[in-house]
Design a protein around this nucleic acid. Structure first.
Lengths: 250, 250
DNA sequence: GCCTCATTTATTGTATACATAATGAATGCA
DNA sequence: TGCATTCATTATGTATACAATAAATGAGGC
């Protein structure tokens, strides 16, 4: 929920952006649906100016698409689009890992990653089928990836990785796929965690090519995971909670 | 020049965006300089609402940076940032080439690329040191790269490539470096053109890994070219013309 | 009965007025 | 003399009024 009237500390623009993002991700605004400014005003409770700003930002974010004659519509994504986005993200993360390895990182920079990794290790010994544990996993995993791209020390790269992350994680179907796959193949998480460990090892040993290859393979695993999930969809009831937790963290 | 008062066919927002982009790229607004809305209003001649839209879009474009307390400043880029951006772009173009190769492309899709390639061949037999020929080269080369990413058939990837192109080509120093390097090492263009030919060949023969490797190497060539240019800067007088032609094509 | 043109309506684009927050300077007090 | 507090000024955030354009619907003619 977007706390429409309360929380005066954040700007109207941000409030509108959060509200609208929530509406899109939760599916209340369907793909391909045109969204008029006045409609957005009704939905968010703020006036047209901040609503327009929010719409422009959501367009840049990739959730909306500008209509030539004016206005915006909710962007539609194919499964192929989402799979491609995962590969793009993996490719960029591969470059990030390689940069980190080639340019060298201090033990101080690596510390938060190792800490995060340890937390993930602990978590993965629990039952990842439960909503709480899975949500915690999603958050920790996202943090690992964010820390990793930071490790590259390259502002343009960090920026690009951020942008390429929008689609795989923003899309409702992405969420459906991610969690449903998880439910039936939680050992995949263990392999993913192995990737996390080995990429850090590669970076520490300055093995750039290896670090890059691991992150690419990591993305391929995620993609495979999702393709698998497309066939046998389960646990769709988990979706709303996941979407909500993701929208909140922005 | 951005034709301030004339050309009523385009929106005020777009006019403001073009004007401001031109001001930034031409260096009249210096890196790190704060740009207030009223100042932007003065400079562009449109009112605050479209100016704000333009500022937000330029922020998303990567040319401006939001100041926490409000407002925007012209973003500053290091040489490292620009070199990284070239590598990022090359990496993504590598994926695009691989996608094209793996998924297959029709002869009809390849036709415009081959035509473009032939035009480049003709051009490269001329004196690339002249402003006209070099400008034409820049335009044709940009078109080749755009067509190539289109060939991937992946909307998310095309989008990402577009975004990663902003920095290397938008930045004035990128232009300085690109053209000054060119002036003293025009044989590099011939090698680059060979890359263009061979990547198409690889795509036609469905050699995905080779296609990807070529585009990566292509970017490395560009990066090397620029590093070289950093040492002996020449022909800086060409800069304004190049910036102007680039700003116009958007 | 269908096609075309005009009128009307709705929606976006633009401008400006107002409010609020931040910044800087000046004055008073310690 | 130095620091803090307050006031003034400037800038951004927000709302709304107005204009222009595009879409839709109706009527009239072919």
């Amino acid at each position: 929920m977007a706390d429409r009237e309360s929380d005066r500390s954040v700007s109207q623009t941000v409030r509108a952006q959060l509200s609208l993002r929530d509406l899109i991700l939760s599916g209340r605004l369907r793909s391909g649906e045109r969204i008029s400014e006045l409609q957005a005003v009704e939905l968010t409770g703020v006036s047209r100016t901040p609503v327009r700003m929010a719409l422009v930002r959501l367009e840049e974010e990739g959730l909306l698409e500008a209509i030539p004659s004016g206005g915006f519509m909710v962007k539609a994504f194919s499964e192929r689009d989402i799979l491609d986005s995962i590969e793009i993200r993996g490719t960029l993360e591969g470059v990030a890992a390689r940069f980190a390895a080639e340019r060298g990182v201090s033990a101080r920079d690596l510390a938060p990653l190792k800490e995060n990794l340890a937390e993930l290790d602990v978590l993965l010994r629990q039952d990842t089928h439960s909503v709480e544990v899975f949500s915690a996993y999603v958050a920790l995993n996202a943090r690992f990836h964010a820390l990793l791209s930071d490790l590259s020390g390259s502002a343009p790269l960090i920026r690009q990785v951020d942008r390429s992350s929008a689609l795989p994680f923003a899309s409702p179907s992405g969420f459906v796929m991610a969690q449903s796959a998880l439910a039936e193949a939680s050992q995949i998480l263990l392999i993913a965690q192995d990737h996390h460990h080995t990429v850090i090892d590669a970076i520490e040993n300055r093995e750039g090519a290896r670090a890059e290859a691991i992150m690419r393979e990591h993305a391929r695993l995620a993609a495979r995971n999702l393709r698998l999930a497309l066939r046998n969809r389960t646990h769709l009831d988990l979706l709303p909670a996941l979407v909500r937790s993701s929208a909140a963290e922005v």
